[in-house]
């Protein structure tokens, strides 16, 4: 199943420095988009995002008492799916329902020669964790991930 075009991520992602590890940040016009972009930033820690074909879909559901904890749960759910399915993901669709998150991640099995994955993410942390709107009203979702 391929992600529908209308659901393609529109926001942006970036990494921010942490001495030993990496900070992932997603920026979007909605909270959902910020979560989707943070997930892209997570994949970009491991490999070139453009090298991952979104050919297989995996459903993900998580629940947490607040949105910041939910962000960490979301990224950790992806870490878990990457580790146990030996896959990488490049496209994401996130929907919220109160304190739960319902998402689809699209990706493909890891091919070491092609993806050149440099490091596995051990887990998303609460360090530099925040979810807020910036001055322009864009949602920014971020935390440091342990590699």
């Amino acid at each position: 199943m391929h992600p529908p075009r209308s659901e393609t991520v529109q926001g942006s992602w970036e990494h921010f420095p942490h001495q030993a590890d990496v900070g992932v940040r997603g920026i979007g016009s909605t909270k959902e988009e910020a979560f989707e972009c943070a997930a892209q930033a997570l994949t970009a820690v491991i490999t070139d995002l453009g090298s991952v074909a979104p050919t297989q879909s995996v459903p993900i559901v998580c629940e947490a008492p607040d949105d910041e904890l939910l962000l960490v749960d979301w990224l950790n759910a992806l870490v878990y799916e990457m580790a146990t399915r030996r896959m990488l993901f490049s496209r994401f669709n996130v929907r919220f329902n109160d304190h739960s998150l319902h998402a689809t991640a699209w990706g493909e099995p890891i091919e070491v020669a092609r993806h050149q994955p440099d490091v596995e993410v051990k887990g998303a942390t609460y360090t530099e964790l925040s979810l807020k709107q910036d001055e322009e009203g864009r949602w920014v979702a971020q935390c440091v991930v342990d590699v």
Binding site: L69, N76, V79, Y80, A83, G123, T125, Y126, T127
Partner: peptide, 27 residues
């Protein structure tokens, strides 16, 4: 080990108030 760390971080963040522990940093 990574998964145990991940799961117990969350449960300890959530139980801190119950044990009257004030966390200066959730981590």
């Amino acid at each position: 080990g990574h998964q145990i760390g991940t799961e117990f971080l969350k449960s300890m963040v959530m139980s801190a108030a119950r044990y009257h522990i004030e966390l200066p940093d959730r981590e």
